[in-house]
């Protein structure tokens, strides 16, 4: 993605009035602000969300959740809390990885083609860096990880019926997670950046 982004920005910056280092800057900011937080979380909503919903849903229809309840456990917190904590740890790491790989991708383009020089690209990465953007990104990821895991777990937990309903819960989990993530993206951006 970083490579494609860099290429496209470079190709479209045709005016000689625009400094070339803005290419590096735009790669950096796109990744930190949106791609590594929102886009990565949307992808994770599809992967992790459906996974959690079908796992918890299967536990529901095979009475494993009832078995937990009968032992006197609080099945909801026993099953769902660890998943939220795990997401709060892993999502930011994945997002960081995505930023690094994305910026590296742009760097490879700078290195291997002549749309932008390595110097300009690196200069752009340093230019007008706003540290708060990183904080903003981390805050968003934390919100999104809680949203995705709790919505998916909720959908799974309240599955009733059979295997067909587990499939439906899993689809609903992904759809609702994505919608709520996009909505919160707007709200958080409005609150934090303006």
């Amino acid at each position: 993605m970083g490579a494609v982004l860099t290429l496209q920005v470079a190709i479209n910056f045709v005016s000689p009035l625009i400094p070339r280092y803005l290419i590096g800057l735009s790669a950096r900011d796109t990744f930190i602000l949106e791609f590594s937080s929102t886009m990565v979380c949307l992808i994770l909503a599809g992967k992790v969300g459906s996974n959690i919903a079908s796992e918890v849903g299967t536990m529901r229809i095979t009475e494993q959740i009832d078995a937990l309840e009968i032992m006197g456990l609080n099945s909801a917190s026993y099953l769902i809390l660890p998943k939220i904590v795990a997401a709060l740890i892993t999502f930011p790491i994945l997002s960081l990885l995505s930023t690094i790989l994305g910026i590296l991708g742009g760097f490879l383009i700078a290195l291997s083609t002549d749309v932008v020089t390595v110097y300009d690209y690196i200069h752009g990465l340093h230019y007008a860096f706003v540290p708060f953007y990183v904080t903003y990104s981390i805050i968003k990821i934390c919100f999104f990880s809680v949203i995705i895991t709790s919505i998916s777990a909720f959908q799974g937990y309240y599955t009733f019926g059979g295997a067909l309903e587990v499939g439906k819960s899993s689809t609903k989990a992904v759809v609702y997670s994505i919608i709520v993530v996009l909505l919160f993206n707007l709200i958080l951006t409005k609150l934090l950046l303006t």
Binding site: Q64, A67, I70, M71, G72
Partner: peptide, 14 residues
Amino acid sequence: RKEIGMVFQGGALF
């Protein structure tokens, strides 16, 4: 419930 043991119709093993 901690004093209850239950065997479900389908087993309900984890």
